[in-house]
C-alpha cells in the first residue's frame, strides 16, 4: 500500500467546504471556552476516539455499554461512545494539564499530543500505524436520508454546527461563562471571591472535550478514515492558527479563522506542496500584524447594528 502523504490536505470539493469549515470551527470553539484549554490536545483526543469506530474494537465496548445504551438505536452507539470517549480522555488529560498555567499549559498540551501521536504511530494493532484505519462507514442514524451522500452529510454537519454554536453562545453568556471570563482576567481575585478555579477550568475542559469530540467524530465520518497523522503537531498548529487568526477569546472569531485556513489550505495545495511553510508564515504574519485576530475589527464595525 502506498504511504499516504501525511500533510496532504483532505479531499475537498466546493459543496463540502462549508461543513469542513463547520467541523473545524467546532473544534476551535472548544478553545474559546477557556484560553488555556488548548483545543490541540482535545482535537487529538477526538481523533483517537475515532479509532473506536473499528468494529472489532467496539465489540467489547458494545457489550459493556449496551445495558445503559439499550434505548438507543444500535447505529447511534459508536458515535455516542466516541463522544463519551472524548470526554473521558479530556477528564484524564485535564487532570494532567490543568496543573500548569499560561505558556506551560500550551507546551504541556502539545507535548502530550505528540506523545499520543508517537504511541498511535507505533501501536499498529490498534491504529493501523502508517496506514491508519480506512473504510469507516457513516452511521445509519435512522434519518430519512442516508448520510453516505455528500449533500445530506453536509446538512447533517451544518445542523450539528448550529447546535454547537447555539450551545456555546448560551454558555458564554451564562453565569458559568462569565466565571470563565473572570478566571481569565484575574484568577487570584476569583479564588478570593469564593470560586473553585480548578473545578471551573476542569468543567470547561470537559466541555471542550465534548465539542472537540463532536468535531472529531464528524471528521472521521467525513473522511471515512483516521490516521495517527491527525495527532501530529502540525494538526494542532493548524487549529491554533485558526484560533489566533480569527481572534482568541471570541465566539465567532475562530469560526472565521477556520474558514480562512481551510479555504487557504485547499487553494494553496492546488498550486504547491509547501502548505506547511505557508501555514507557518501565515502564523507569523498574523501574530505580527493582527494580534487581536480578524474577527474583533469586524465586530467593532458590525457592533453598531448587531449585539455580538
Amino acid at each position: 500500500m502506498s504511504k499516504p502523504d501525511p500533510f496532504k490536505p483532505r479531499r475537498f470539493s466546493a459543496t463540502t467546504l462549508p461543513w469542513v469549515v463547520g467541523a473545524a470551527a467546532l473544534v476551535v470553539y472548544a478553545f474559546t471556552l477557556n484560553p488555556w484549554v488548548s483545543l490541540a490536545s482535545l482535537d487529538q483526543v477526538a481523533r483517537v476516539s475515532g479509532w473506536l469506530l473499528d468494529p472489532e474494537l467496539t465489540q467489547p465496548l458494545y457489550f459493556l455499554v449496551t445495558l445503559p445504551l439499550r434505548w438507543m438505536p444500535a447505529a447511534w452507539v459508536p458515535p455516542a461512545l466516541n463522544l463519551l470517549n472524548a470526554i473521558l480522555a479530556a477528564a484524564v488529560l485535564g487532570l494532567l494539564v490543568l496543573r500548569s498555567r499560561g505558556p506551560q499549559f500550551l507546551i504541556l498540551t502539545l507535548s502530550l499530543a505528540q506523545v499520543l501521536w508517537g504511541v498511535a504511530f507505533k501501536w499498529k494493532a490498534l491504529t493501523g500505524g502508517d496506514d491508519g484505519l480506512p473504510g469507516i462507514p457513516r452511521p445509519d442514524l435512522g434519518l430519512p436520508v442516508s448520510l453516505s451522500g455528500v449533500t445530506p452529510f453536509y446538512y447533517f454537519s451544518l445542523f450539528l454546527f448550529l447546535v454547537a454554536t447555539t450551545l456555546l453562545y448560551l454558555i458564554v453568556r451564562s453565569p458559568f461563562g462569565c466565571t470563565l471570563e473572570g478566571i481569565r482576567e484575574n484568577e487570584a481575585r476569583m479564588r478570593a471571591l469564593g470560586y473553585d478555579v480548578w473545578l471551573h477550568q476542569y468543567i470547561a475542559y470537559l466541555l471542550a472535550g465534548l465539542f472537540a469530540g463532536m468535531a472529531g467524530v464528524l471528521f472521521a465520518y467525513y473522511n471515512g478514515f483516521v490516521s495517527p497523522v491527525d495527532l501530529h503537531l502540525a494538526t494542532s498548529a493548524k487549529c491554533l492558527l485558526m484560533v489566533v487568526l480569527g481572534g482568541a477569546g471570541t465566539l465567532f472569531g475562530p469560526a472565521l479563522g477556520a474558514a480562512v485556513v481551510v479555504l487557504m489550505e485547499n487553494l494553496v495545495s492546488a498550486y504547491t506542496q509547501r502548505w506547511l511553510t505557508i501555514l507557518g508564515a501565515t502564523y507569523v504574519l498574523v501574530v505580527l500584524f493582527t494580534p487581536e485576530g480578524l474577527w474583533r475589527p469586524i465586530r467593532r464595525g458590525l457592533g453598531r447594528w448587531l449585539p455580538l
Binding site: 448560551l170 453565569p175 458559568f176 466565571t179 471571591l193
Partner: peptide, 20 residues
Amino acid sequence: LLLALQGLDGMKFSMLRPLS
C-alpha cells in the same frame, strides 16, 4: 460586581441561562 455576587451562589454553575 456580578462576579463578586455570584461567587458564593450555586447559580455560578448554571450554563444555559444568560447571567442577565
